[in-house]
Design a protein around this nucleic acid. Structure first.
Lengths: 200, 200
DNA sequence: GAATTAAGATGAGTGAAACTCAACTTCGAA
DNA sequence: TTCGAAGTTGAGTTTCACTCATCTTAATTC
């Protein structure tokens, strides 16, 4: 499977730089795929994606060896902006509740791209959100530790649990198209569950 | 999509009774499909399922018009025993925390059929657990109301939210094969989030 | 800046699987 | 027994994902 949405700079680790046309085509294919999948769902043929991107079908398969690979790459791509936003949260050391902000942001990004995710899901595609969130692991570690030290979050909560819960909730929120209010209410329950238990 | 796993008695709503051979074949196909999918994953061909069930492929498509329909029916079937267990919980009016038991049972059933669910998920099939849980709606309504009246659960929690949360968590637990301990810990967070907030 | 070369692009071709349908069979009612 | 509707059959159709031998081109080298 393919970890990076669009290789940021242009060098395949180790060897010579990736050719310019290859990088351009990869980006084109990802954009075309996103558009096509929104319009027709994940059942749209790879042929269609290739046509929209203006490349031959073989080129699509060179970049993304299987259809699931292509779908995964499209999804991964959509989470890219999240990484940037989370970095900002990490850089405010005095904000003890930034962890809650992170959860809210994850939900928000998911909601913004709901159209894509819902379309993919309805054709039966599993969108491995867990994989995407794993990239945030260092940030979660840091923010959780910070919140716990300040007593804002229960001590026995572990990063993996939080990520799993967040992934689970977000997954469902996207595929079932929860309303703003509903999302808020569910997050409230999660947040209350994360807080230190009042009565020992 | 098909709501019922195996039509319990034998009458298509309205018309004359469903023929005996049709009912027999439907059950055979469901069982064959479950077995085949466990062995080969959801990518197994409908042809294979038909062969295992001892019917022609056309018969499979008559009962389940599309492959997703077949997959959904297989899954729905696995949740049947849950309905029975939940009925038992409802019939113990003095048990104020039966709601927590229900959640635990849902997780347990999911875990028991983990092999099937994981196999289906790994080939990219979305298993609409929410649909299955909706059948439990009346029971959830009752148990939630009971727990709230006793002050064991926060007043502002609504049935739909609980079901959504449960579906989300369970979904992730099955597809990612959570350990017993991990499941326990996540449920703890959920339960704490469900309790009345200590500090108003 | 021409020669070199490996990475990349191409698209007709292949195999497999989902789904169809016209002919045939069987169940159940009268 | 008869009859009609419901159910079954399986070869055939269509649509896709994926391959690969061949051609093209971006980058490196001298």
């Amino acid at each position: 499977m393919n970890r990076d949405g669009v290789s940021p700079a242009g060098s395949a680790s180790g060897g010579r730089p990736v050719r310019a046309d290859a990088r351009r085509n990869r980006a084109r294919i990802l954009e075309a795929a996103r558009a096509v999948f929104v319009e027709q769902g994940a059942a749209a043929s790879t042929e269609t994606v290739a046509a929209r991107a203006g490349v031959a079908i073989g080129t699509v398969f060179r970049h993304f060896p299987t259809k699931p690979d292509l779908l995964a790459a499209v999804v991964m791509n959509l989470w890219d902006r999240l990484v940037v936003e989370v970095d900002e949260l990490v850089n405010e050391p005095e904000d003890v509740t930034a962890l809650f902000g992170l959860c809210t942001r994850v939900m928000a990004i998911g909601t913004q791209n709901r159209a894509v995710f819902a379309r993919l899901a309805e054709t039966g595609t599993r969108v491995h959100l867990g994989d995407a969130l794993t990239r945030l692991r260092p940030a979660v570690d840091l923010l959780l530790e910070r919140a716990q030290r300040a007593g804002a979050v229960r001590d026995d909560l572990r990063p993996a649990e939080l990520i799993a819960l967040l992934a689970a909730i977000c997954q469902e929120a996207m595929t079932d198209e929860w309303s703003e209010q509903f999302r808020q209410r569910v997050l409230t329950i999660l947040f209350d569950g994360m807080r230190p238990t009042a009565k020992p």
